[in-house]
Design a protein around this nucleic acid. Structure first.
Length: 230
DNA sequence: AATTGTCGCAACCGCACGTTA
DNA sequence: TTAACGTGCGGTTGCGACAAT
């Protein structure tokens, strides 16, 4: 037996959101919250939309403090470094960039950043000019690169990242709090957990991990080299 | 000015996982 | 124990905007 669809596709509107729909959704959520049930929300809010569509629209566009527009060099560096250490875990990467959404970062990576990286326009953390304190280009573009650009395979992009971002950027506190709170209630890991040296699954004992982190985590920045996905 | 090609982004799709009854 | 359900995530697609010819 197949999985039941989340909504009746024949009776929901699809495609771009109108300003009126945006206003309805925003007003409803600001007034009542999501109620912890996205499926029921559209009906309550008077929208002919799928609950998943409402959720996506809210998270990626209507939510307060969403940042759109150009990414800074520092954001580029964070994305590249985290991609090098945890891969395409866009939601985790987004959690490290306030105001950015996973969808935004994913689109940015697929359309621009990957190319920038290949062309050598992303400064790496270990490639800062100590005299001027300004970033050097990771791989200064050569005439060859500029004139005969070839698409790179996923493997070669991975190699580029690995070679350029040997020092992973630590995830910031909020993720860790979320993780800790979650684990306090459960006593084990929901899915996978990874530091720069260790990887765990949901069978791993929490005390064991805490001990490993405390004994091995200091990287001189007062942070742990911790990657977490859940 | 018209046509064609490319790019960027919003939105959709399907799957995996956690929760609940 | 297990099936149904809700949520979140990553991959993919569709389409409008813009550039090139």
């Amino acid at each position: 037996m197949g999985r039941a669809p989340c909504c009746d596709k024949n009776n929901v509107k699809r495609g771009p959101w109108s300003p009126e729909e945006d206003a309805k959704l925003k007003e409803f959520i600001e007034k009542y919250g999501t109620g912890g049930n996205w499926i029921a929300l559209p009906q309550k809010a008077g929208l002919k939309r799928c609950g998943k569509s409402c959720r996506l629209r809210w998270l990626n566009y209507l939510r307060p403090n969403i940042k759109h527009g150009d990414f800074s060099d520092e954001e580029d560096r964070v994305i590249c470094s985290l991609y090098a250490s945890i891969g395409s875990r866009w939601s985790i990467i987004a959690a490290q960039l306030p105001g950015r959404t996973d969808n935004d970062i994913k689109n940015y990576w697929n359309t621009k950043l990957k190319k920038k990286l290949i062309m050598g326009f992303i400064p790496s953390s270990s490639n800062i000019n100590q005299r001027t304190k300004s970033p050097n280009l990771l791989f200064p573009p050569t005439s060859t690169l500029q004139t005969t650009f070839q698409p790179q395979s996923q493997a070669s992009i991975s190699n580029l990242l690995r070679d350029s971002y040997l020092e992973p950027i630590p995830l910031v506190q909020p993720n860790f709090i979320t993780w800790a709170d979650h684990q306090k209630a459960n006593g084990y890991f929901g899915n996978n957990f990874q530091t720069s040296q260790f990887q765990y699954d949901h069978h791993t004992n929490i005390e064991e991990v805490k001990e490993l982190i405390s004994s091995s985590s200091s990287n001189g920045n007062g942070c742990n080299n911790v990657g977490y996905w859940g």
